[in-house]
Amino acid sequence: MTNVLEIKDLSIDLIKNKERLHIVNNLNLTIMKKQKYGIVGESGSGKSLTSLSILNLLPEGIEVGNGHILLNNDTNLVNVSKKDMRHIRGNEISMIFQEPMTALDPLFTIEHQVSEVLKFHGETSKKEMHNKMMTLFEQVGFARPKQILKSYPHQLSGGMRQRVMIAMALICKPKLLIADEPTTALDVTIQAQILDLMNELTEYYDTSILLITHDLGVIAETCERVAVMYAGTVVEEASVKDLFDHPAHPYTKGLLSSVKSLGDRTKKLYAIPGNVPSPVELKDAGCRFASRCPFVMDICREKEPELFSVQDRHYSKCWLHDMEEGSTYEYATTDSESS
């Protein structure tokens, strides 16, 4: 399979008083063709910034400091010109945001907004555009697509607006769809509809997905591979099945035990102590999870761990997987010995 997107040694910096704070540090990930890739993390972990950096949409004062983002193995998105970037957005990569309420312009009809995308990407015939929109709107599950096209965003519910966003994102058949918390603002029953729809359509259009969420359940249901982010770094990367069966990093373990102990009222909920550190509190030296880690060792505070390979294509950024240092890691699963 070919790579659609490859992110190498990416760091995203916040420039404050001429100082560079690495909000995202040394991020590596590869998304293959037709793959469904998930990034999961708590608020402030840098997952949304990562997705924005792919499309050159970082807010002012924040920029890519280091590394490259390769599209189709050749175009480096970090230093693409503005004009070229506009062609990549929509055609090659498109994005769905969390808030379907604010992502659509309230002053224009749905038809106007969707046709704008088509016009920009070279479609001129009105009839052709209308036909394209009608078929796509039927695909995203609207019973009466004609009516929807004529309506304004405020006339639609949250779930319907998110369907419009999906239709808009897929209308140019992009190779990669970035979905940043696409179902967080929606109710569970609507979330199930939208996830189902995304799965179905991306299969149909051969699109890869980069799904960004804080919900481990959503990852488990939709993705094939997953990266867990904490305070701006990927702490663990694995296939979804491996991650949920044998989590390796102490942070992932903590998160999963928090989620899995929910509902079992006989036991106390497992809670990771402390809070996610803000970017200002982060030191460059040492592991970023050290202050909350139950297995913290001296080396964790001094030196940043590398991504150790725990198993075949399962990586964890923790000193416990380094054989010499990690002999005290008694809670580790048996297969976590580093190779």
Binding site: G159, T189, Q191, A192, L195
Partner: peptide, 25 residues
């Protein structure tokens, strides 16, 4: 029943039968 079936499960190996509701409230 459908509300409970819509909760994303954290067990990727167990695919459960989902009842997907049509439409909105």
């Amino acid at each position: 029943q459908s509300l409970l079936s819509a909760i994303p499960s954290t067990k990727p190996r167990e695919k459960k039968e989902r009842i997907i509701l049509k439409g909105d409230v």
